[in-house]
Design a protein around this nucleic acid. Structure first.
Lengths: 257, 257
DNA sequence: AATTATAGTGAACACTGTTAGCTCAATATT
DNA sequence: AATATTGAGCTAACAGTGTTCACTATAATT
């Protein structure tokens, strides 16, 4: 092993990385053409120019290949939202938030099939997923191994960049103390505070803030999911409709543009 | 053909209907056990006690079997929402609406796999779908042939009973004229009015009413879809969270419970 | 130079959806 | 009542799938 001691990757590792890239590229191509269930291991092998069995030197199974693909997509999505946020000054919280909301949707609808695949694989041991999330909030998402990352919850993964940003700002910049909160039981309060705050944002934030974040997230995610799945009643003027929905949501949070 | 002239179905037709029932039951069982992609035609044949080729006397393909299954599920869902609405007096619009909202979610989350299957097959010629919907609004949904019904839009199918109810009441009972509507372009106004009104509710309703219906529908559908797909950040107290979201939505519509 | 790890192969296994050609019994028709 | 026709069912096969196993070169390490 030359790369574990030296910094530069060995010749073999470069080759390996490249074929992994080819395999993933071929898989993504089939995803675009034939949808999530139309990805065939043998067809990938055919396209890459290798025997079907050879792929098992790179991935444990077709499923794990798809999971790693999903992780790549999450990285792409996260990167896209991060970039569009960073186009605004660090203290312009409103514009950064709007940038995130728009780029999130933008990525999802212009990568529908990828988005579809990301939502279509919830078949992990669900308890494990929760344990993973609430565990330690300091290890960067990008450095987790693919299987662990895939087993994390969609909500957290999708909202990762937004969450990270608000974790960083500690919720300053917006005054959500006036947000109308419904009467909630002790149980729901604790669940939101613990799970959502600990999982997504980080602890010690006011409940009203976390509640606003959660219900806002639910609303955005619902809108985008519907659009990506083709369940939207509006089609032609959907950009405007989306904006109207977002504006009405922000009004609920006491934010006027 | 004895049943086309006489009213009673022939012996053969009874047999046929029964085996169709067995096939569908077996398919649903596999859907529950192994998910939408785990439904195997050969496994169904094995369970029913018949050769795989025999199933092609009853369904054109596995896909069309699944589509017909979906139609059955839509009927179930529609029937469930209708029943819960009819538990309230015909003039108690608020309670009927709440009943629909709750029973819709209730069916979806207690039939997750069925709901999943219903959302997972948008692979039709999409133009056809729209044409089907806006065509004639008077032919009952239940009497359309399975393929046509499956090719209709999810939104319309899911909201069918609610839409039918409001079509019947002509929007009376609620005063949505005060609903805050954003500024909308002529295009969006027309699309909402034409597509949504014509497709779902029936024409000649005030725009504010149709807009309220549409955005309310989007919000409910988003919530339920997220929950069914396991993307909700809240789990243990999700009933209460759902109620809170619905209440806040109704507040936006000027409805106080 | 000998050894070990790795990428790759071909053949096989147990599946899958689908089609073609055939049989046999239940209806319909003459 | 005898005959023709339709329907349900079968077997066998085709083309495709994911996966495993034993085996072979080639590259890297010792």
């Amino acid at each position: 092993m030359s790369s574990n001691t030296t910094g530069s990757p060995s010749r073999r590792e470069r080759m390996r990385a490249e074929t992994i890239g080819e395999i993933k590229a071929s898989a993504r191509g089939q995803l675009l053409k034939h949808g999530p269930s139309g990805i065939s291991l043998r067809a990938i092998a055919r396209e890459v120019g290798v025997s079907p069995a050879a792929l098992y030197r790179y991935f444990d199974s077709l499923d794990s290949l798809l999971k790693e693909l999903c992780c790549d997509f999450y990285d792409e999505l996260i990167e896209a939202t991060r970039e569009s946020m960073d186009a605004w000054p660090a203290d312009d919280h409103l514009e950064r938030m709007k940038a995130w909301i728009w780029s999130f949707r933008s990525w999802a609808v212009s990568n529908r099939r990828e988005f579809e695949l990301m939502l279509n694989a919830p078949e992990d041991d669900e308890q494990n997923a929760l344990a993973m999330c609430s565990n330690d909030a300091d290890v960067p998402f990008e450095q987790l191994d693919p299987v662990t990352r895939k087993s994390m919850e969609h909500a957290q993964q999708c909202g990762h960049e937004l969450a990270a940003y608000y974790k960083q700002t500690k919720g300053e910049g917006f005054d959500f103390s006036q947000v109308e909160m419904p009467e909630m039981s002790e149980g729901l309060r604790r669940e939101i505070q613990e799970k959502c705050a600990a999982m997504i944002i980080g602890a010690d934030l006011p409940l009203s803030w976390v509640y606003a974040f959660t219900s806002g997230w639910v609303r955005v995610f619902g809108l985008v999911t519907m659009e990506a799945f083709g369940s939207m009643p509006v089609h032609d003027n959907i950009d405007e409709f989306y904006e109207a929905q977002i504006r009405s949501m922000m009004k609920d949070f006491g934010i006027e543009p």
